[in-house]
Design a protein around this nucleic acid. Structure first.
Lengths: 219, 219
DNA sequence: TACAAAATGTTGCAAAAACCACAAAAGGTG
DNA sequence: CACCTTTTGTGGTTTTTGCAACATTTTGTA
């Protein structure tokens, strides 16, 4: 099993990571593209690290429509412990969107202290905390955006955050417009219509994925 | 300053909590009802523990409309580190909804290790991790609910989770219908109309805050 | 380069939701 | 109890949205 070079193990030397692997009962599993990695409903809690490939978290409703809730890149961490749970209606699961390797860690062991690796274990918990804080910020940002009632407000709310982060009135979407509509939880064509309207009103010009806010007062 | 009896300090004895207070530069501040406690936009990060009273996290838009994003009860923790940030458009801040006492902790110190209290510091970080995980789950649950496009689906999605948690097809809203509409980010009157429709269709009966799902197959 | 697949762009139409205005009921308080 | 405030309940009207269907462009890849 390859020693991980991911934020979860930052500031821990390779030898100590190996000890932690034992402590956390690490198991490496390979998945084909499209394969289901796990359901998000286990009582125990899944904790996975993507060591190659890519993982998407998908919600599947009773009609078979699927929505992508999250993308996890290489060295990213996914877990039903801190995000999303299947319900009676909607199934949520992790899928390999590419040929993917995942290292599974035993979640309960995170909070147990074994005798041999305690020092690094503390660092591990700190790293984990930082990651969950980051996930939490991302989620709360999305709640803020989704809390707007109209597509227009959702787009402008997103733009407001993007402008703040980029420091410029122009920014590029980190995803396709199709995915963007999915992120905003709105119909793509309705969003396109609204983008055109915003453009004609001189509020926000868009060219494919490049967005330019024309006046800060609008956002 | 009263020794805290809150999840952030669980499994830590009173004497050690006092040491941690020093380590984390704890400062106790009292607020009158309605007072602004802090803005959610500081670069450093606010970390507050409610030791008496109640705190609400409010978003205030340019028109002056305010939305309550979160309620923090006694012994609860609030922080802009893991949830919500003000943007150019919307101001977000913490307010005392009752006469309230808050103990502020220095966020950067959470990740620093001082020589005298390290043992308890680890426990503190673990406790903090558990709290952030809990907050994260709450947020992701809300994203799941808000990701539905119609009011009907939002209500049923909420009901699905509530039924799962309560273990019964009947549950009582922990808030007013007015607040519930705000939580779902929909117009209250439109929601009332939809609740009536759900009732007439024999899907979900509601009487004030008491909801009864008539058949599990609907949720 | 040629082909297939994905993404972008556009429109009509029906459905849904927001907005508005108001009435009745419930709850809290002096 | 009387008063005020909040919550609940209702319906009309306008706006917004989702849906479906399609053309065009871009992208990836064999």
């Amino acid at each position: 099993m390859k020693v991980l070079n991911c934020p979860l193990f930052s500031n821990i030397r390779a030898e100590e990571v190996k000890k932690l692997y034992i402590c956390l009962r690490a198991k490496e599993v390979k998945f084909e593209q499209g394969a289901e990695i796990c359901a998000y409903d286990s009582g125990k809690g899944v904790l996975g690290v993507v060591t190659s490939g890519e993982v998407v978290i998908k919600k599947i409703d009773p009609n078979g429509n699927s929505t992508i809730l999250d993308h996890i890149q290489k060295n990213g961490v996914f877990s039903d412990v801190f995000a999303f749970t299947s319900t009676e209606v909607n199934f949520i699961g992790a899928y390999a969107s590419l040929p993917t390797t995942v290292v599974f860690l035993d979640y309960p062991s995170v909070f147990k202290r074994c005798e041999n690796a305690c020092e690094y274990h503390s660092t591990f918990v700190e790293n984990f905390l930082k990651i969950v804080i980051e996930k939490s910020k991302t989620l709360s940002q999305r709640v803020e955006i989704l809390s707007n009632k109209t597509i227009r407000e959702k787009v402008l709310s997103y733009a407001s955050i993007a402008v703040k982060n980029s420091g410029s009135l122009t920014f590029t979407l980190p995803m396709s417009l199709t995915s963007f509509a999915e992120y905003l939880c709105v119909d793509r064509s309705a969003m396109m219509r609204e983008l055109k309207k915003l453009s004609s009103q001189g509020v926000l010009k868009t060219n494919k994925r490049v967005f330019t806010v024309l006046d800060k007062k609008y956002i």
